[in-house]
């Protein structure tokens, strides 16, 4: 099933790529916060934008991580019973419990999309002193949910292949962590 593998690999690569870029936002948050402190304390001229911009970049950073973390098996679970099953049984279990995953991410995708749309529709700004637009950051919710959903689909296909015996599971998931 080359198409399936291509999908799984493609999605994982996409999320890894987005993660590599989004992870750099930490430098922006660090720099902007320090700049804010510098302006307020050293120059006695507080900025109106540093706190708000940091907050929004953090929101973007946090929400976009969903797919990346999943691609690296970084969403923690309880492995008390789970670890005792065979890889194939685990795959079957994951297929069953993925219903919850899809309900959650589906709800976030649709209703997050709605929140983003309401914001775009009214060209929402924060009405703070700086008054930046909010919609790019709200739009990150459905985008992130979509990326997470894709990664979840990739995992589902992988689990189905494993359950059917078409694919051997990776030896140790933990090795995948960056």
């Amino acid at each position: 099933m080359p198409v399936l593998y291509a999908f799984i690999n493609g999605v994982t690569r996409l999320n890894a790529w987005i993660g590599r870029i989004a992870s750099l936002l930490i430098f922006a948050m660090f720099g902007i916060l320090l700049l804010g402190v510098f302006y307020r304390y050293a120059l006695d001229a507080p900025t109106v934008w540093t706190t708000e911009l940091t907050q929004f970049l953090f929101g973007l950073y946090a929400v976009l991580s969903g797919g990346y973390v999943m691609a690296h098996r970084g969403h923690v679970n309880v492995d008390i019973v789970y670890a005792r099953f065979s890889p194939r049984a685990r795959a079957v279990l994951d297929i069953i419990t993925s219903v919850l995953f899809f309900l959650f991410t589906g709800a976030v995708l649709y209703f997050g999309g709605l929140i983003a749309w309401e914001s775009i529709d009214s060209m929402e700004t924060t009405y703070s002193s700086w008054n930046p637009p909010v919609y790019p950051f709200k739009a990150a919710i459905p985008v992130a949910a979509f990326l997470l959903l894709l990664q979840g689909l990739a995992k589902l296909f992988e689990d189905i292949a494993i359950a059917l015996g078409r694919m051997t599971p990776e030896p140790d998931n933990a090795e995948h962590r960056p």
Binding site: N77, I80, V81, L93, T97, F104, T105
Partner: peptide, 19 residues
Amino acid sequence: FFLVLGLPLAFVLGGVSVI
């Protein structure tokens, strides 16, 4: 129940809420 089944915590919390 779903935690024990090994689904990551974030999705258990989210999924159970939605249901």
